[in-house]
Design a binder for these strands. Structure first.
Lengths: 191, 191
DNA sequence: TGGGTCATGTAACCTGTTACATGATTAG
DNA sequence: CTAATCATGTAACAGGTTACATGACCCA
């Protein structure tokens, strides 16, 4: 996965491992993260596969750097990947796994829990930071219409977060009903 | 992740590796999958950790089986996990990665693409199969109110799918606009 | 003088996927 | 007779995470 993300970025222009890391941190972080350790490892294997080429650049006042460029094979691989295996899988969410087993905890605790995540920002800033980054990169590349796709992914984040909040609302409502039922039962028994 | 899913299932009652596999396949598959290869491996390490205990049961007419039970330590670990690290991370989606770089393909192809996934069922059956499974398991355990949480995860799947379709709609609209702009430019140039 | 930026990586580990392998019983 | 169900796993690989490690320059 990360391999193709890197390929896509190098397709916009040559970059060092460090620069790739900053792009992930600043503008792709709402759907993917990447540690430098993994980036440098992937760059090595991609170079061996012939998808990218490396060139050493000496610098003064700064450490030397290794700049990577996409090759013709790399560009072909990028297109192949974009067109292949296209139907999205269903959600794979550790968070839902927890929800599934939450019955082990008291209802009261679970209501508080869903209120907390409803109020917490899953997609911070409503995507403003990501949008700003997208606009910055848009100016830097030749073909500005590519930013349309970047903004679509940001919109996804926004819509996802809205849905998440609504779902929390549903959970809270259901659980308050359950709590009510439990209280009624206790009353009935005591009569 | 899978470890705790298994722990949660064993907490409802003893099971073999095979039974755990069927539960994942029939009712947790909308947010998690599990291969038998991984299940048997995890069972081994969980047993070593003392979270579960194993007991060999001889059968006639069927292969013998190894039945696993949750231990006190396992139950403690389950509760610890449920309460720990509770804020959900943002989406981590290979599919969004592809969308991000889709600018490499022609607009026309991308419009067709989003139409395809809009019309494909991401969450098949609107969750009816999962709901049926939940109701079946509900009857099998002592504490039926746990099914409330199971149904909440199914509801998540439903809401997620609805959102996904809406987002595809947004993508299609944006890209049709982009296509219009491109056609206009071609016309202007030819005048 | 202390923290941020630029710049590079290695090693170990954890988790999930793919491919392979076996074999009896039972229902259609 | 054939497919599904019950039942168990191993081996190799792929991809992501955590921890560790180094070092110069620049700004406050």
């Amino acid at each position: 996965m990360l391999k193709h993300g890197i390929l896509g970025l190098l397709n916009y222009g040559d970059k060092t491992g460090y620069e790739i890391m900053t792009v992930f941190r600043d503008s792709l972080n709402h759907f993917w993260t990447a540690q430098t350790s993994q980036i440098y490892r992937e760059l090595q294997t991609m170079e061996k596969a012939g998808w990218i080429s490396e060139r050493h650049v000496e610098q003064t006042g700064k450490p030397d750097k290794n700049v990577f460029s996409i090759t013709a094979e790399g560009r072909a691989e990028l297109l192949r990947w974009l067109r292949a295996d296209n139907l999205p899988r269903s959600v794979r969410d550790p968070f839902l796994m927890k929800t599934f087993f939450r019955g082990e905890l008291p209802v009261e605790e679970n209501i508080a829990y869903f209120k907390t995540i409803r109020d917490a920002a899953v997609f911070p800033d409503d995507g403003k930071q990501a949008t700003a980054a997208a606009e910055m990169y848009q100016a830097a590349i030749q073909n500005p219409e590519k930013a349309v796709y970047w903004k679509l992914t940001i919109e996804f984040g926004r819509m996802f977060e809205r849905m998440y909040r609504q779902w929390c609302q549903v959970c809270i409502r259901e659980l308050e009903e359950l709590r009510q039922k439990q209280t009624d039962e206790v009353k009935e028994r005591s009569i």
